[in-house]
Write a protein that binds this DNA or RNA. Structure first.
Lengths: 198, 198, 198, 198
DNA sequence: TCATAAACGAGACGGTACGTCGTGTCTTCGG
DNA sequence: CCGAAGACACGACGTACCGTCTCGTTTATGA
């Protein structure tokens, strides 16, 4: 029989998620074990397994919790180019920071070997972020700053794909200049002919 | 003392690499262990640890071996657009195939938690492939099919980044139509103004 | 604060004792856990821990309950030899029965690792049984069928000790013939010289 | 596949048996776990499970090892009464010593819940000891100190049964006087009529 | 006669040990 | 005298119970 969420101990839940994030930041994924999370959280292992399928699910929940904290929407100054530039710079900075990217690394490893978890990560963690960018692009399209014939989901991937690629495969540095280069290329692909400079 | 490569048993080396790939294709990464590779290859575990740092290194060698088999260069018909289309279609098809992508999944997981291995994978496995694409783009640039002001390495990432992104994060299907969409967007970004249709 | 026996639920008490005996008979000691007893009895674990120190105490109570049911005294036909023979045959039969001896096995294990429980078992369960035999021997001594110089407690142990020994250590079968052999030897030790046959 | 005894590490084997006995003497059965034995012996748990079915089997082997050290035969001075008296006094003293009886307690608990182990304990540990006593009785019978019509196995149980009984059930003190009482009663049962004093 | 406090069922909790699996190193033995 | 075979120390896995600790829900007085 499945556990009853109503009787769940909120203090333990928080302690577990916090412990997972702390351990990831401090010792990295390789040293992250369910046993250590439990010990750090002052919790029995069973309390973890009662509510999560394994450490992957714990990490995901911790990330979703953290992500849900902020607003989530992409600022709209009226200038798509500027907004994307700011967004991509921030994203690149996040991937470049070892502490912050440690959690991304961890959840990536976990999803690569667990399809169910991958679905969850996509729907609960990633989709909201990507949809926020898509919304900003839609707004840009409504004011004529984005070509009307492009698939906006593909544009989102055009922006984030290269960053993931570079981060994952270490093909180059994750700098601000790089971020701007990505945005420039993407803008070149989506800006309507009438607005182009080159 | 380090092992003497001169005395290395080529038969065992081949058997180990083959066993690793077979197990990956058959049972997936989660069930891939050094012990199973050794058993399948009819080899002692020590023979693996003598020549490789762990299963990650074995997988990498197996992939490099397989990749080195072909030519490696991207065909040049004179039409960059057509060549990229064919290339990206093939790439997407490869990622879509569970058997073929199982090895990519495996090496990705391994590199995510082993920086030394990541470097090796980048230099020995990935770079040659990316450079081949870059070379094709350079050729295209020489004949005026590619804008002279773009960073070709970034263009390569513009092509492959979205594919990795979608494969990694399961944000959508990896179909031929999708491949074409990626190419279209990239072309929009790199085609000189004079050649544009839109 | 200790629980108030006046408010104790008799229905639960019975259900717990019954569940313990049933589980012992059905699945044996190794599978007997407080959790299973509670589940079988339809009772919360705390209700067991409120009234008993653990499963050992529950088993003891169950046995005492069962033992207290009958009269407890050893029949006296006037012939010590015959009465002992009947008694020991019954005792051996009980030890030979897997269902009945399962409870003895359980309480033996528990008392071996819990001194307090051992005292209780001795005083509440065993002593009455042994005293009943001792009383029968005393009666026999009064009519000259038992040597006046023997320690009757030792005689009781002389009768039951071998049975426990054989049961505990599986050194031989627990048959009626064996029971008679035990009695014969004991009688040889305690019968006054004047009554001896050999 | 079962492990190959030829490749067994004798040093580890000894360390495990020694650790088990030490822990039993120091902290008692309740605190004896496979994990602690392994830790104390400086050994991996798997090395225990590779060669034994569990802690019960380890204890048994340790006891057999210890028992096999000595000669095992019962001294023969020509006087059965005196030899039995010395033997039973020593036996009672052993059961009375908490350190020595701790191992007996442990193996008793284990055999009570494991039939296969019980057989082993009977054949490898107990039978040799009981047979030694039986041999001494046989010698006594040949010289007319023991009635020819008694079953010697039952006589052995007549000697040891009461001791086990009293030790197991704590029905009285395990003193030298008690030991003598047991022997006196047994002798009364087995001494030929012609030699009796009473 | 009904409030009220205890016992109750249920089961989540922090722990401990289980028995298994894989790692990377060390040892043995047969070809 | 190499190398397959696999034993070894180690440590994490996921599970089972332990005994304690809330939770509502009966239940059974005693105010």
């Amino acid at each position: 029989m499945p556990a009853d969420p109503a009787r769940r101990n909120e203090r333990s839940r928080r302690a577990i998620l916090a412990a997972a994030l702390e351990l990831l930041a401090e010792t990295g994924y390789a040293d992250l074990t369910v046993e250590r999370i439990a010990a750090r959280a002052g919790v029995g292992k069973q309390t973890i397994y009662r509510w999560w399928r394994g450490k992957g699910a714990v990490i995901l929940d911790a990330l979703v919790d953290a992500a849900t904290a902020g607003d989530g929407s992409v600022p709209d100054t009226g200038d798509v180019a500027a907004d994307l530039r700011a967004l991509i710079r921030a994203t690149v900075a996040e991937f470049a920071d070892p502490r912050l990217s440690a959690t991304t690394r961890a959840i990536t490893i976990e999803t690569l070997s667990d399809d169910a978890l991958a679905e969850q990560a996509r729907d609960r963690l990633l989709r909201p972020q990507l949809d926020a960018v898509r919304s900003r692009l839609e707004a840009g399209r409504r004011v004529g700053q984005v070509r009307p014939d492009v698939d906006l989901d593909q544009v989102v991937e055009l922006l984030f794909g290269p960053i993931y690629h570079r981060w994952l495969l270490r093909t180059g540095p994750l700098t601000e200049a790089y971020a701007d280069g990505v945005v420039d290329l993407a803008l070149a692909a989506i800006t309507p002919a009438g607005l182009r400079q080159g």
